[in-house]
Design a binder for these strands. Structure first.
Lengths: 211, 211
DNA sequence: GTCTATAATCGGATAGAC
DNA sequence: GTCTATCCGATTATAGAC
C-alpha cells in the first residue's frame, strides 16, 4: 500500500499538459487584446484549435483560466523585481532593474498588457497582490533608496514616483506596442532599435537621479 | 423662403444636449473600465439613467458612441501637445510639455484610459490618427530636438524614445491610478501628492537629458 | 478524455405604442 | 421624443453520447 501514484500512469498526462498549455497561451493572447470581459471562450478555444466544450473540461470557468494566467504574470514580475536586490550600488541596482524590466516587456508583452488591462478595470483579481506583496516590495525598496539619498549617492526624491517612472517607461514598450509600431512605419521595433531604446531608458533614468 | 431654421425651435434642443452629454459621460466611464468590447450599452444607459433604447435614439450604434468619445480624446491630446511649441528653450519646452501632460492625466484620467484600452486592442479606430497626425507631430518635434542636440543644448539621444518616456510616465498616473491607489493605502493621490509627483517627473526628465 | 448538441442568459438593436 | 416589449445573434456553461 503506497501513497505515490504508479509512475506508468502519471496524474497529469503529457497530452493534458499540452492541451492545457495551448489553451493557456491562447487565453493570454485573447485576454491581452480584449480584456477579461471582452475575451470570449469561443475565441480562446478557436485559437487553441480545440472545441469550446474542451476548454471547460480543462478550466471549469473563464475566470479560473484568467486567474491561472494572472498568477504566472505576478510570478514573472516578482522574478524581475528581485534584480533590485543583488547589490548596494545605486547605479548598478537601477541599471540592472531597468534592464530586467525592459527585457521582460520585450519577452512577454502579453503579460504586461494583461496586467495593464486588469488595472484598467479596477484590479479585482490582483488587488490583494497590489496591496500586500507589491506594497511590501515597494516599501522595502523605498527604504533602500532613502538610505542612498541620505548618503548623498542619489538626488533627493520621492522613491515611489521614481519607481512609477521605471514601471511606466518599461511597460510602455509592451502595452503601447501597437502605437509604437504605427510610429515606426508599421513595423515593430527591431532588436537593434529595442536595444537602443533600452540603453537610452537606462541612461536617461540614471542621469535623472544621479547627483 | 429661408434656409435657416426658425430660431424658436433650434435643431438641437437643450434637452437633447443634456441627455447626449449624460450618455457621453457614462460611456466614457464604461469604455475606460471595460474597453470597447467589454462595455455594454445596458450599463452605459444605466449609469446615464436612461432606458437602453433611448441610447440608440441619440447614438445609432455602440460604435458611433465610441467614435464620438474617441474624437474628443484625440482633440484634447493635440491641445496638450501644442505646449511643446511655444518657445525654443529646451528646458522650458520640456517642462511645459511634461506639466501639460501630467495635468491632462489628472484632469481627464478616463480619456487616457480609453486611449490605452484602444491601443491594447490594436487601435482599430485611431490607427489612422496614429499613422498620420501623431506621426507628423512626432517627426516635427524630433527635428526640433535634433537641432537642440546639434547645438549642444541637450544630451545626445533618440528623440522618439524620449517622448515615449514622457508619454508613459505622465499617462501612468491616469492609466494605473487604481494600482497607485492600492500602493497609497487605498486612497487616490491627494493634490499635494500629485503636485509632488508632477514636479519630480519634470525634474527627473530634465536632469535626464540636460547636459 | 473528447466532442456534438443544447440549455440558459446576455447584449445590441428595433418596432411600435404613447 | 420617449420608453416598453421584444427580436435575434452571441456567449457561458452543461448534458450526455461516444
Amino acid at each position: 500500500m503506497t501513497l505515490t501514484p504508479p509512475p506508468q500512469r502519471p496524474a497529469r498526462s503529457a497530452g493534458r499538459e499540452l492541451k492545457e498549455k495551448g489553451l493557456f497561451e491562447a487565453a493570454r493572447s485573447v485576454f491581452a487584446e480584449e480584456g477579461f470581459k471582452g475575451a470570449t471562450t469561443a475565441e480562446i478555444a478557436r485559437r487553441a484549435g480545440v472545441p469550446k466544450a474542451n476548454l471547460h473540461y480543462y478550466f471549469p470557468t473563464k475566470e479560473a483560466l484568467y486567474r491561472a494566467v494572472t498568477e504566472e504574470i505576478l510570478s514573472d514580475w516578482l522574478a524581475a523585481a528581485s534584480s533590485f536586490d543583488e547589490n548596494d550600488d545605486p547605479k548598478q541596482a537601477i541599471s540592472t532593474y531597468v534592464a530586467a524590466k525592459m527585457d521582460l516587456a520585450r519577452a512577454d508583452p502579453l503579460g504586461s498588457r494583461i496586467w495593464a488591462s486588469e488595472i484598467l478595470r479596477g484590479a479585482p483579481v490582483i488587488k490583494d497582490f497590489l496591496e500586500t506583496t507589491l506594497a511590501e516590495w515597494l516599501a522595502s525598496r523605498e527604504a533602500i533608496m532613502r538610505r542612498w539619498i541620505a548618503a548623498g549617492k542619489i538626488r533627493s526624491l520621492e522613491p515611489r514616483y521614481f519607481f512609477y517612472m521605471i514601471w511606466a517607461t518599461t511597460q510602455h514598450y509592451a502595452d503601447f506596442e501597437d502605437q509604437i509600431k504605427a510610429l515606426n512605419g508599421g513595423a515593430p521595433l527591431s532588436d537593434e532599435q529595442f536595444q537602443k531604446a533600452k540603453a537610452q531608458a537606462i541612461d536617461t533614468i540614471l542621469n535623472g537621479v544621479m547627483p
